[in-house]
Structure formats: C-alpha cells, structure tokens
Amino acid sequence: QELLLAESLGKHPLQNRWALWFFKNDKSKVWQANLRLVTKFSTVEDFWALYSHIQLASKLTSGCDYSLFKDGIEPMWEDSQNKRGGRWLITLAKQQRHTELDRFWLETLLCLIGEMFDDYSDEVCGAVINIRAKGDKIALWTRDAENQEGVTHIGRVYKEHLGLSQKVTIGYQAHADTATKSGSLAKTKFVV
C-alpha cells in the first residue's frame, strides 16, 4: 500500500523505511534522553528533502551523532537486532572533517538506502557518525558478526563506495567485544 502511494505521488519507494536519529551530548541527562528520533522516510525524494534540511555532519558540535537505522532498530548495540552484530569502523584524522567527512557520510547513506550490498543488504542494520574533537568516526552496523561471508562482502562494497585506496584497510568489530573493552582496544574481527 505504501509502495503504491509513493508511486502515485511520483516518488521512488525504498526497500526499507529508515529512521534518522540525533544524539547531542548533554551530561546532565542520561544517555537515552540525549538520543532523539528526528524522522522516518521511505522514498528517495523524502530522503533528499531531509538531507537538504539538516546540518551537514561536519557542522555539528563535538559530542553529537547522526544515526540512520532501519525502522524498528534502535541505534544502540543493546537492540536485539544489533547485539549479535558489529560494525565496520572508519576512523578519521582531525583534518578529514573538512575534506572527507561529509562525503563519506553521504556515500554511507546512499549505500544504505540504495540497498547496495547485493544479497547481504538484509544484514545491514544502519550507520552512525560520531563527531568528536579527538577524531570523527563513521560506522556501518550489521546484524550478525559471525556471518563472515556477509560481513566481508559488505565491507568490500562499502570500502569501494567510499573510494578508499587498496592500501587502506578497514576493520570490523563485534559489538560484544566493543562493549567489554574501551574503544580502540576492541579486537578487530575482520579486515578488508
């Protein structure tokens, strides 16, 4: 029904409905209170309307995140659809905020909504961008860290879309490992 409605309005329906979340670090509040659902969309046109309306990630203040997840999955590793999963992590150097951050994030969003991971697109849960003074991060979250074939396929396609050189490697961490260790100490499960 939703698909027919989108087409009748001359819009291009997406395979999934997506939810954009915004996180703003306010230390006077608990973590969950700082996380807000911005909106949901399910057509290409509504994605662009939203994207054009919100601030570029590079203009956000430190401590803020954007997350884009499939409708029904909350942007936290505790969600039942995330907790057995993990993330491909892109760690950026400080100067890349001005040169590559917005482009990487847009490419990430296009990969998600365009379902560009072939047979493994169902493995994708969402993506998160963290704006941090010490270095920004972008992560693509998948649902099953044990699905080596799916995870590595997604990683290869993702890396290609970001335009990363073959000399650069990106790593995948299971949320279960990240949750028990602090950031950079989490072990890397796969590399592409």
Partner: peptide, 18 residues
Amino acid sequence: GTRIIYDRKFLLECKNSP
C-alpha cells in the same frame, strides 16, 4: 521477493530533479 535497489548515480539524479 524482489529487492528495490538504486545505484549511486540514480540517487544523485533524484536530488537534482525538480
């Protein structure tokens, strides 16, 4: 069923279409 897939070029064209 079938999956609705869009490539990068198509998505970017949609941004610029009226």
